[in-house]
Each structure stands twice: as C-alpha cells, then as structure tokens.
Nucleic acid binder design. Structure first.
Length: 383
DNA sequence: CGGTATGATTGATA
DNA sequence: TATCAATCATACCG
C-alpha cells in the first residue's frame, strides 16, 4: 500500500538490505518493506537545512517520537502499541519476537539518551569554556555582546548538527531493527492447519463469490487467530491462484465441497422437516455454515436455482448461499464459479461480471474437466 | 539441495 | 479503497 521512499534522508544503503540469498544468485536488494507507513506526513522533500525549524530534523524527531525512542520512558510509541495489540490476539507465536524487538528497541533508546545527554553536556561545557575565554579576552580587548552571542550560536549550531547525526543514526538503527523483526516476509509462518481448513471451507463454500465482507473477515480472523489483513491476503492469493489453475485445485475443491455438502444436506433436511412440522416461514436454525448470518431465506428457492440454473430468488441469507455453492459444486464439479447468480445484488458486491463469475471466464460448465472426473461425487446436472 | 507451496508486498487499476 | 497480478522471500517436503 504505502511505502516510505520519501525518507530520502536515510542513506539508501540502510533502507534496503542485502539478502544473502540462494547461492550464486546475484545479491538482491529487497525493496524497503513498509516500515514507517505512519510517517507519511513527513514526506516533504527538498530539505533546506538553513532554517532553524529544520524540516529534516522535525522528521527525525517525529519518527523517534513515534517509535518510542525519544518519547517518555515506558510504553513506547506506536510500535509498542501495535505489538501489544498483536499479542493480545492470543498468538503467542510472535509475541516472543515482539518482546525481543522491544528489548532491542529499548537498547537503542538507552544508547540514544545517553549519547544525547553526553552531547548536551559537552555542548554546555564547551560553551562555558568559550565564554570564559571570551571573558578573559575582554580584559585585553573590547568584546561586544553581539560577538558573544554569535559565538554561542555557532557552537550550538555545531552541536545540534552533531545531535542530528545521532538522531539520524538512531533512526537508521530503528529502521534496520524493524526490517529485521517486523518484516513479515522474513518471518513467514504457514498458518495452522486448522486455520487453512477454516479459510478453505469458507472459500469453497462461497466459490461463486469468494469475497468475504469485512465482518466475515473479522470472524474468520478470529477463528483462525490471524489478522484481518492476513485473511484478506489469503483470499487474494487464493482467488488468484485458484483461477490461474483451477485444475490444480479440483481435488481440494471437491474435498471441501463434499465436506460442507454434508452439512448443507443436514441443513436441508432440517429445513424440510421444519417445513413439514411448522409453517413455511420458519427459519432453519441449524445452518451448518461457520458463519451464522441472519436472514436464512427460503431454502426451496435455492434448491430450485440449483437445477434451473437461473436464480431469481429474492433475498437469501449468505449461509444458505454457501450451501448452494457447495451443492452446485458437487453436482457439476466443473470449477464451479460459473453459476448464474448475476441477478442477486446481495451476492455480487464486487466483480461479478455479467456472466456472474468472479473472474471473467465465459460461462460454461466445461471450464475445466481436468482429468475427466477425478470426481467421486455423483454428477447429474440434469434431473 | 532443489522444487513447490504459501504468506506478504508492491504497483496498477477501476 | 479493495482487489488483481506479479513477484518476493521463506517454509516445507522429497
């Protein structure tokens, strides 16, 4: 999303990193990962040094403050807050890394503060030293207060430039630290089997429109103990990889389709029973889906849509929809996103084409028949 | 160790 | 702004 290329004041060598990489490969420079997205406001370029309210210095100060280096003692800034937030999710997996990160950060902070103090002290000492010299000289020659002021100004400027260097190198240290510890690419872990299971279940049961809503993403994130953006990443990857090579995913699709189909069937049975015993408007409570959305809708409508392949039903709940997807997949295991759901705006929030598919492929029920029936589940499209 | 799987990042896009 | 497409970097497996 964002990047921090605008941090021109960092030497390039520090914003990028050499990767040891696979043998022989030419050393690669990885693009600076988005550390520091939060400092976008600092992106003014141009860096005029002269003026006292030096923008560059301000940027450094901002960053140090935000990183919790120059700020108040404990707590840290955004970084610590983010770490705490991440850790609260229960994924103790990376909280270790975070604590490690924090330890290193506080180390940096300590060094920064002691150095800063040293500089200030040195500055004061030097100033008084010069003042004394001037005072001594004033006995032999007249020295205007203006001259004194000028000298002091020079000294302070000199020291503040040193200070700036300190700040800069501290920033660099923090950046490197962050890229080491927080660049997720370096620390990639596969999701737990359970998590992938849940995600796959959702994906294949919403094959006609695998775009979980924000709430659904949150729900999934909670169930999988991952973040919402990880869920988004996962779905993004999954969609693209699925449609790139549907054949490869056939088996998986069948697996999950069958899995949820059982649940769907149960739900259908329950619904039917419900209908028999009570009024047709009775909702089916036992929807199997992992996502119990309200508004179950009329199951019969969906079943008809399965056969008729033209869905005109009015409002239907998403859980029901998922069952439809699943059943449809089982019935005509062709890769299955070609259902004609176009009419229902409820389920086409994103990229449903006129065709009804979430990736534009010509309709057809013959998108892929990979090995002509790896399938097990009976396929009788007509009935 | 090499190939594949997979999670994350980035730039483009509508 | 969410998503896509390409790509990166690491994990995992034979």
């Amino acid at each position: 999303m964002e990047n921090f290329h605008h941090f021109s004041f960092f030497p390039v060598s520090l914003c990028t990193q050499r990767i040891v990489g696979p043998v022989g490969a030419p050393p690669k420079i990885i693009r600076p990962c988005l550390i520091l997205q939060s400092y976008r406001s600092l992106s003014i370029r141009g860096a005029q040094e002269e003026d006292p309210p030096d923008p560059q210095l301000m940027r450094l100060d901002n960053m140090l403050l935000a990183e919790g280096v120059s700020g108040p003692e404990k707590g840290g800034g955004a970084a610590a807050a983010a770490a705490a937030a991440a850790a609260s999710g229960g994924s103790s997996d990376n909280s270790i890394e975070h604590s490690d990160y924090r330890a290193k950060l506080s180390q940096i902070r300590q060094i920064y503060h002691t150095e800063l103090e040293k500089y200030e002290q040195a500055c004061n000492e030097f100033t008084t030293h010069v003042m004394n010299l001037l005072r001594e000289q004033s006995r032999t020659r007249p020295i205007s207060p203006k001259e004194i002021e000028r000298m002091v100004g020079i000294i302070h400027r000199k020291f503040s430039s040193i200070q700036m260097q300190l700040k800069q190198s501290t920033c660099e240290a923090v950046m490197i630290l962050r890229s080491r510890f927080l660049d997720a690419r370096r620390k990639r872990r596969n999701f737990s089997k359970q998590a992938t299971e849940i995600l796959n279940e959702y994906f294949y049961s919403h094959l006609s429109n695998p775009y979980p809503s924000e709430e659904a993403k949150e729900e999934l994130a909670k169930k999988c103990s991952i973040t919402v953006s990880q869920v988004s990443n996962w779905f993004g990857n999954k969609r693209i990889r699925y449609k790139k090579n549907i054949g490869k995913f056939q088996e998986e699709a069948n697996l999950y389709a069958a899995k949820t189909a059982v649940n769907a069937a149960h739900a259908v049975a329950a619904a039917v029973q419900n209908n028999q015993t009570s009024s047709p408007t009775t909702p089916n409570s036992g929807s199997s889906g992992s996502f119990n959305l309200p508004n179950s809708g009329d199951m019969y409508m969906n079943m008809q849509s399965l056969n008729g392949d033209s869905y005109q039903g009015a409002q239907v709940g998403a859980n029901v929809q998922s069952q439809v997807d699943t059943l449809r997949h089982v019935i005509n295991q062709t890769g299955g996103y070609s259902d004609a759901l176009g009419g229902n705006s409820l389920y086409s929030p994103h990229h449903l084409t006129a065709n009804g598919g979430w990736h534009e492929t010509a309709t057809p029920s013959s998108v892929t028949s990979p090995t002509e029936g790896p399938g097990s589940v009976n396929s009788d499209t007509s009935n």
